[in-house]
Structure formats: structure tokens, C-alpha cells
Write a protein that binds this DNA or RNA. Structure first.
Lengths: 334, 334
DNA sequence: CTGAAAGCGCTTACAG
DNA sequence: CTGAAAGCGCTTACAG
């Protein structure tokens, strides 16, 4: 049998409402009563029923994590678990629960999100991806439901957190340039991802300054962020002998590229630089190439913090106000 | 204002109980009424409140995912997102929700799990790790709360799903042996993980048969499952020149090992073989070394299926009965 | 400082 | 085939 507030009340010789107030640490209850009730609660192993609490409170203290349509590139990218870790930490700090979205296709995913929201299961959402024309995103914007997106979408105001992708790409490009690698290509992947567009922009801006504009032919896109894609692209590139500096938009792709270079023994011909969600090999000589640490864990942690802030402040103003935070990246040099 | 069963009832000219029965597709309600009520539900965009439903039903149709204490080796290992994907798919198929456990240390993790269970937030749990003397595991065993563990723990009966680690390790070892690589070492990592012990056993069994037993000195353990650990171990090993075949217990470690070999140009000296959660590079020549595909996604999918089965059949028998499933691994050869 | 009562939005015997 | 009523386990005005 499960212990409810009633049992505790009876055992403590008080009313259920008093027990409820003790749980909430309500100031109007005397210390003596509080202590007595708490002792009973411990003794009886009382735990509040969240369903009842959430029903009456009309809020759940839980956040939904919105995943994209299932695909290898997302699930294999270290960004995903790293972000989850950050969200998890922040959730734990604030005693929030985390509900995962499910569903393969757009229909079932949207359906699940609607159930979560209308069913009062979540107070807010965190999007772990940012793609244009996403039906779920459109839906929550319409509904004005609280959410934070990791990444950004041009032209639509929303709460978001992101890396300063233009900036890190600029710094990356400048680094190659300063090192003397001045025949530069950008290897991206999925060009529909905003961050790829932004990183391209960064590279372009720097090369513009150096009067050596990046042409469209120097931008490699149109493939998923996977190691073997980078590997094959690089095998093509090596044939041309056109570049010596490579800015690579994704770290898995970079790994494939690096493998190709290593296999062909051309480490001295190419310098590559990429972007990673965390610092991979501290204090180790196992480092192959420079990269920017994007601190994805902290990024996601902040996403959660921002969301909680938004949920808590809700309804206190008529005008719209959005949070847009940028997380800096650090250059890590072998 | 949110639409409840009452509003629907009023609009349809029926009682709330009738609406409830329509939602449940209760056979005693006439088709006419059902259709009328459903039309109204659509029109009004009615969505059931899950908190109310779960409160009265005393079950949540949600499963808790139990994560280990936060550490790099877990979050960086591709097993984690792969397993999550499998669980997610099965959850979606069965209309189950997924709640993530949170907390850094053992205390706060156990605390959260207790809240989940006693607070009636979850009907069952899936453990994404299997370590001896885990306080959460002990707790749920004591409570007889439904759970499935991915992996296994010797000597304690519980519902579990796992790869046949001894078998894949045997096959891996036999493969090396047949290829002529007969000076064999095992590179593990975290020897407290059951699957490492099992894989060691597999290697030992095969070498025993070939009258060339694996000595303790040929087993490398005592480090986390990370690339640079494999890299450094391998650099040590290469100095000794004692082996030509390497069975590597974890794929991240294997990657580090491979890098070391590649850097030193010793690809012809060593043959390695490892175990991966998914098939990495289908139809591609970007494959470095043979490995066993452990099908972690399907494994986790099955974990969820088994759990749902257990939850549904609960209380129908007095005697204890546990499910123990093994997923086969496939050798993938470059 | 504490209690009795109403209500959150559902479901499910019990009647009819 | 359908409805009125009780109840799931909480919280929170309203009294006192």
C-alpha cells in the first residue's frame, strides 16, 4: 500500500492540508508541527504523488527534449550525448525532470509533442537541432509555448543559444592563414544546417580580407556528417592538389578527412582545423590537428537554465522578449 | 482556456463519463455517439490531461532511463546514443514516454529514482549500464520494481539483455588466429565492467584450445574507455614487439590503438579486432579493421520491448520469472 | 497557526 | 447504451 498525505496526517494527528503545507515548507506552520510531521514522513517513507501534484499545480517541473527525425548523422555525432549531459546536469540542479520526445517521422513527432504540451506533461521544450521549416518549431512558435533552441534560425525571433559560428570560423581561417596555409577549402556537409552556413560566412569574410575570396568550388557540401563522407571527399580533394588548408565544419567529417590524409602519408601537405563539442585530449600528445572547443555541454546547460528562467517569469509582461546567448569557442592547438 | 472532458461532454450533449469511454473506445458506447463525440473532440482540439489520467489509472505508461554517474567514458561512447535511439523507437511504437534519470553522485541519483518510482512517474526502468554493487540496482531489486538491465551481473537474477560477449570474443580471437596472428593480447579498459570480464574469458577459452594460454600480462586494463588511453597503451605495446594480434574490448580504445599503429606505420605488423555498437561504414572502403557489430540499437529496442511485456504481465504469478536475452554479434570484415 | 472543503481532470464501478 | 457519483492524491483559498 502506498503512503499518502492522509496517512501521514492521521499518524501525526493533523489535517492533510497541514501536511501539504509542511511539504511546501509554508511559513505559517509552526516549527514544532513541521518537525513532527517530517519525522512521520520519514518514518512512513512518504513520497508525494507527482501526478496529483502536477494535476493541481497545473505545471510539471519537467522539460521536454525535442529530438530530430532519427538519422545516423545526429545519433552518431558526439554533440548529442554531450548536450544531453549538460541538460541533465542543469535539470538535476533545479530538480527538473526530463522527458524525451519520440517518433520517427514528422507526423508522429509532432503528435507526441502536442500530447506532451496539451497533456500538461512539460512546462517547456529544448530543441536539440535547428532546421528551417520544422513543423514542430512552427507549432510551438504559434502556440507561444516556452522553448529554447540550440542553434539558430535566421529571421525568426526565438529563445536560442548557440556558438558564435561566424567568429570561430573566422578565427579558424585566420589561424590557418597565419600558419602559412593559404590555399583554403571549406568542407561542410549538410548545408541546410544553419551553423554550416555561418561557418562558411566566417571563412569567406577572412579570405575576403586577404583578397583571396572563397569560391563556390572551394566549398564542399551535400553529404551527412559522417566519417566516411569526409574520408571520400578528401580522397577526391587530394587528387587535385589545390589546397593546403582545410576548415572542416564537423568533427566526424574531420576525422574521416584526417584518416585519408594519414593513410596517404600527406600529413605535411595539409593542415586541417575543425570544431568539437568538448576538449578531447587534455594533456596528451594524442592530438592530431587544431580545433575549436565549442563547449557543447555548457551550451546545453545554459539552454536549460534559460528555459527555466523563461518558464518561471512567464506572463509577467505584455511585450515579447527573447534571449539569445552566444557561447565562445576556444582554440585548442596540438 | 484548456478544453477538458467536461467541455466536450457539454458540446456533445453527453455526460463526461461517456466522453471518457469514447476516448477509451469502450465497446458499450454506440458508434453514433462515438462518432459525434470524436467530431467534437477534434473540433475543440481536445487533448487528455495526462496527470489526471495517470493519477486515476495509477500507471504512467512511461519508462525511466537510468544513466550512470556522469563520466566522459560513458557519454563519449557511441553505445549511449545508439541505445537511446533503440529505446526511443520502441517507446514510440508502443506509445510510451521516456523519462531520463538525473543526478551526478550516487545519492542524488538514487534520490531521483525513488521520486520517480514512489511518485508514480514511471512504470519501469531501463538500466543503461551494469556495474556491481550499484545502489540503485540494489534498491529496485529490493523493491521488486520492474526493470531491464542492458548488460548483466553475475549471480543475481534479473531481467536483462546483453550481447553474447564470451561468444563474440571467442569468434574474434579465432579469427585472428586463423589469419595467422597468434601472438595475442587483450586490451580492455574498465575491468569492473562485466562485459570486459566476459570478453577476456572468450579470448582465454580460444587460446586455451590452441595451447597458448593468455597470461595476465597479456591483459591490459585499468583505464577508462577513451581513445587516447588506447593510443598510449599501444605506444607502450609497440615497444615490446610481443604481439601481432590484438583483441580490443572497446571501440573508442580501438580507435586510439589504430591511430598509434597508423602513426608508426606498423599496419602490417598488427591485426586488431574490436566490437562496435553499429555497422559503421557499409559499402565503403573506409574500413580499417575487422569488428563485431553488436547491434546496440536493436539490443536497446528489445530491452524496451521486454520491459513493456513485464509491466503488462505484472502480478499474474507468484513465482519469479526472469527474462535473459542474448543478441548475436556479426563479424564485419574490411 | 491549523482545519474543512472544494477542486484539478480524469476513470470506473454501480444503476438504470 | 448512458449517466450520476465517488475517488485518485494532492493544493489552496477561506474560516477560525
Amino acid at each position: 500500500m502506498t503512503i499518502t498525505i492522509k496517512e501521514v496526517a492521521k499518524a501525526a494527528g493533523v489535517a492533510p492540508s497541514t501536511v501539504s503545507r509542511v511539504i511546501a515548507d509554508h511559513p505559517s506552520i509552526s516549527e514544532k508541527t513541521k518537525q513532527r510531521v517530517r519525522a512521520i514522513m520519514d518514518e512512513l517513507h512518504y513520497y508525494p504523488n507527482y501526478n496529483a501534484r502536477q494535476l493541481v499545480n497545473q505545471r510539471s517541473k519537467t522539460v521536454g527534449i525535442v529530438l530530430p527525425e532519427a538519422n545516423d548523422a545526429f545519433y552518431q555525432n558526439p554533440f548529442f550525448p554531450t548536450a544531453l549531459r549538460g541538460i541533465n546536469e542543469a535539470a538535476s540542479r533545479h530538480q527538473y525532470s526530463l522527458l524525451l520526445s519520440t517518433g520517427d517521422d514528422d507526423i508522429s513527432r509532432l503528435d507526441h509533442i502536442k500530447k506532451m504540451i496539451y497533456g500538461k506533461q512539460v512546462d517547456g521544450l529544448i530543441f536539440l537541432y535547428a532546421t528551417q521549416n520544422d513543423p514542430i518549431l512552427s507549432f510551438v512558435i504559434d502556440e507561444q509555448f516556452p522553448f529554447v533552441i540550440i542553434g539558430n534560425i535566421d529571421g525568426i525571433p526565438m529563445n536560442s543559444i548557440d556558438n558564435d559560428n561566424i567568429r570561430v570560423a573566422k578565427e579558424a581561417t585566420e589561424y590557418l592563414w597565419q600558419q602559412g596555409y593559404q590555399r583554403i577549402a571549406f568542407i561542410g556537409g549538410d548545408e541546410k544546417q544553419q551553423f554550416i552556413q555561418q561557418r562558411i560566412k566566417g571563412v569567406q569574410q577572412v579570405l575576403q580580407v586577404h583578397h583571396q575570396p572563397l569560391s563556390d568550388a572551394d566549398i564542399y557540401n551535400g553529404f551527412p556528417f559522417l566519417e566516411n563522407e569526409g574520408y571520400h571527399i578528401m580522397k577526391q580533394i587530394m587528387k587535385t592538389n589545390r589546397y593546403n588548408g582545410l576548415v572542416i565544419g564537423d568533427q566526424l567529417v574531420a576525422q574521416g578527412v584526417y584518416h585519408a590524409i594519414l593513410e596517404y602519408g600527406l600529413l605535411n601537405e595539409y593542415q586541417l582545423i575543425t570544431f568539437k563539442p568538448y576538449e578531447v585530449y587534455q594533456n596528451s600528445d594524442y592530438i592530431h590537428y587544431p580545433y575549436f572547443n565549442l563547449h557543447s555541454q555548457q551550451l546545453a546547460d545554459r539552454a536549460m537554465e534559460i528555459l527555466i528562467e523563461i518558464i518561471s517569469n512567464k506572463s509577467d509582461s505584455k511585450h515579447e522578449r527573447f534571449v539569445y546567448e552566444l557561447i565562445a569557442g576556444d582554440l585548442v592547438i596540438p
